[in-house]
Nucleic acid binder design. Sequence first.
DNA 1: TGGTGTGAAGCGGTTCACAGCA
DNA 2: TGCTGTGAACCGCTTCACACCA
Lengths: 259, 259
Amino acid sequence: MATGRTHRPATRSRGIPEATVARLPLYLRALTALSERSVPTVSSEELAAAAGVNSAKLRKDFSYLGSYGTRGVGYDVEYLVYQISRELGLTQDWPVVIVGIGNLGAALANYGGFASRGFRVAALIDADPAMAGKPVAGIPVQHTDDLEKIIKDNGVSIGVIATPAGAAQQVCDRLVSAGVTSILNFAPTVLSVPDGVDVRKVDLSIELQILAFHEQRKAGEETAAGDIGSLPASTPRVAAADDSADQGPDGDVPAVMPA
Amino acid sequence: MATGRTHRPATRSRGIPEATVARLPLYLRALTALSERSVPTVSSEELAAAAGVNSAKLRKDFSYLGSYGTRGVGYDVEYLVYQISRELGLTQDWPVVIVGIGNLGAALANYGGFASRGFRVAALIDADPAMAGKPVAGIPVQHTDDLEKIIKDNGVSIGVIATPAGAAQQVCDRLVSAGVTSILNFAPTVLSVPDGVDVRKVDLSIELQILAFHEQRKAGEETAAGDIGSLPASTPRVAAADDSADQGPDGDVPAVMPA
DNA sequence: TGGTGTGAAGCGGTTCACAGCA
DNA sequence: TGCTGTGAACCGCTTCACACCA
């Protein structure tokens, strides 16, 4: 099976830890909500609660961006929204192509979150000739044959793969050779890409399996505790883990689709 | 905004690190593929390549499960498949409900990965009365009013939330009070749940924003390097990060849907 | 006084390197 | 001889605790 990506040679992205980068979108979302309610400032405590992290972590995260807060007061909402947007590169528009317009691809195309902030669906691509020309979410589906041309004409650097597992690596190779350098992979496959290309993975079945693991553990505890004084049964609750941070290129984390 | 989950009180799940648990499904998938090709044994090196990790990590992961390998030979594929399945709790069937049958919910319902291993879509639930009775993926959609009854009648402990952000917390609360203890959340919201409930998050817009961050960095490098000897421009490539491990309950990682 | 910014300690995970067994 | 299993070093992230400043 293909694979063979190198591993993160450390070298934090421009000094900002990956774990922090992975949380910036979370903060941004919370800040946007505050902004819409015209809240002028927030404390690290409040914002952390809204984003689901603890305040120490949030302050540390922001410290990597610079000193954007005011001691004794908090952070200016609008200013932070701008700074984080800029840091994430959302002040520009990223054209995105979605390859594989099945149920999932269609769902992604219809997903309103794209347009809202920095992303624009530049094209939908599918291998099925019958799909060609058919509009999905108001955008006509184009055939895979034109993939390279579409990428180049639109200056696309971010691609979303929502094809079956079997087609994913091939699509990935074509995307990369056409110039795509960031890929969001929904197919349940380990993609092999050259250095310099980022791959992030979303895998539903992996997420479910992780939940099943903890679920099983809970069930085991109950039994142990319920039985007439069997064993110590002192196993602690699952409790809450935290963020999952990055997976960077190479990809290795969660994923959505077939198993 | 709601939040307020405690943070992982350490206490690794039954001695197995969360990061390892998050990789077990990956190994299982690779092993299943080998099994279908009737490969009897694999070395840590081969399996690691297929799963997209390095062999030291894989061996360390397996060492938490026990000594299932044979020195000088490798691992017995069938045996490992069984052990990992058992460890993940996939030897039993987990009934799952999907709430919110929009584009995404329908895609998830049609997703074949459920049935394949340990999961079964027990019911589809939507708030739209017009959807009630309509079959999606061969399963009739039921109305939200019956949520509690559905959960209890089917003994469901795992719920998938694919509703709009605004409805997610309410749906979550109802799922939890009906007995669900593991939630996979596709809505772009930080869910607040009591202790003992696991939440995992899948958020498309967060994934895209992380990619945009790296993409921007790459572009910056090129410019810096391309310009006529401007600055040192020694910023290293993004390179590859690795897995993203767990997010455990509380949820904090990636996610799919609106922004 | 109140809340940010941050050095330092703590912790989980990864990687190394090799002992040990088939 | 070859590959697993694992102690130990290493590394990055999280958490603590408090100095510092509006």
